[in-house]
C-alpha cells in the first residue's frame, strides 16, 4: 500500500491529482494507492505529524508557506518520506532550497503529463522502497557484523586471559592437549 499526500492550494488541482492516482485503468498504475489531500500546508503538516506517509506531492506557491519550507518540515517529521514538488512557477532560489534543504526526489512542472507524472510517482515509490530495503539490509548486516565482532571480542578476551585457549589441539584419541 502506498500512502500518498497531495498538497495544493487549488482544490481542482488536488481533485485532478487524486483522480489520476486512484485511476487503476491507466498505466503505469500506482500500486494500492491511498490518497490524502490537503489545500493548506499547515493542515498537511498536522497530518504528517501523526500518520505514516510514503510520498508527499506538494505545490510550490501556496499561501502561508511555500513548498520548499513545507517539505523541509515534512523531512524533519518523517525523514523516510519521498518528496516531490509539482509547480507552475518557481524561482531559482526556490528550486535550490527544495533540492538542498527539502531533499526532494523530483521536480515536476505544471501543467504535467499524466503518464509522465504517474511514471515519476511509481519510480519515486520504487526508489524509496529500494532505499528502505537497502537501509534495512544494511542494518541487518550491521547487526550481524555486530554479533560476529562480539564473538570475536569474547574470543580475544578469552585468549588474552588464557592464551591458546581459542586454539584447541586434539589428540588422536579425542583428548585435549593442555600445555603448561
Amino acid at each position: 500500500m502506498a500512502k500518498l499526500l497531495i498538497v495544493d492550494d487549488e482544490p481542482n488541482v488536488v481533485s485532478a491529482l487524486r483522480r489520476m492516482c486512484l485511476n487503476s485503468m491507466m498505466t503505469p498504475a500506482i500500486p494500492d494507492a491511498q490518497v490524502t489531500t490537503c489545500t493548506s500546508p499547515l493542515q498537511a503538516l498536522k497530518h504528517v505529524g501523526d500518520h505514516r506517509v510514503d510520498l508527499v506531492i506538494s505545490d510550490y506557491r501556496m499561501p502561508g508557506m511555500d513548498g520548499a519550507t513545507f517539505l523541509t518540515r515534512v523531512k524533519e517529521l518523517q525523514p523516510d518520506t519521498a518528496r516531490m514538488i509539482l509547480s507552475a512557477y518557481t524561482d531559482m532560489e526556490g528550486i535550490v532550497r527544495a533540492i538542498n534543504d527539502a531533499g526532494i526526489f523530483r521536480f515536476v512542472s505544471k501543467p504535467w503529463s499524466d503518464a509522465d507524472l504517474r511514471f515519476s510517482i511509481v519510480q519515486v515509490l520504487q526508489h524509496r522502497e529500494l532505499l528502505l530495503e537497502n537501509q534495512q539490509l544494511a542494518n541487518e548486516v550491521r547487526v550481524q557484523r555486530g554479533i560476529i565482532s562480539r564473538q570475536q571480542a569474547e574470543l580475544e578476551r578469552l585468549e588474552a586471559e588464557s592464551p591458546g585457549i581459542t586454539r584447541v589441539r586434539w589428540t588422536k584419541d579425542g583428548g585435549v592437549v593442555l600445555e603448561d
Binding site: 488541482v13 485532478a16 491529482l17 483522480r19 485503468m25 491507466m26 507552475a88 505544471k110 504535467w112 499524466d114
Partner: peptide
C-alpha cells in the same frame, strides 16, 4: 506576469489531467 502564468497554468494543468482521466474512463 508570474502571477498570471500561475493563474493560467493551474487550470490548464488540472483540465489537461482531467481529460486524460476521462479518456481512460471512457476507454474502460
Amino acid at each position: 506576469a508570474a502571477g498570471v502564468a500561475h493563474e493560467i497554468n493551474n487550470p490548464v494543468a488540472f483540465v489537461l489531467s482531467n481529460l486524460y482521466t476521462l479518456e481512460s474512463y471512457l476507454t474502460g
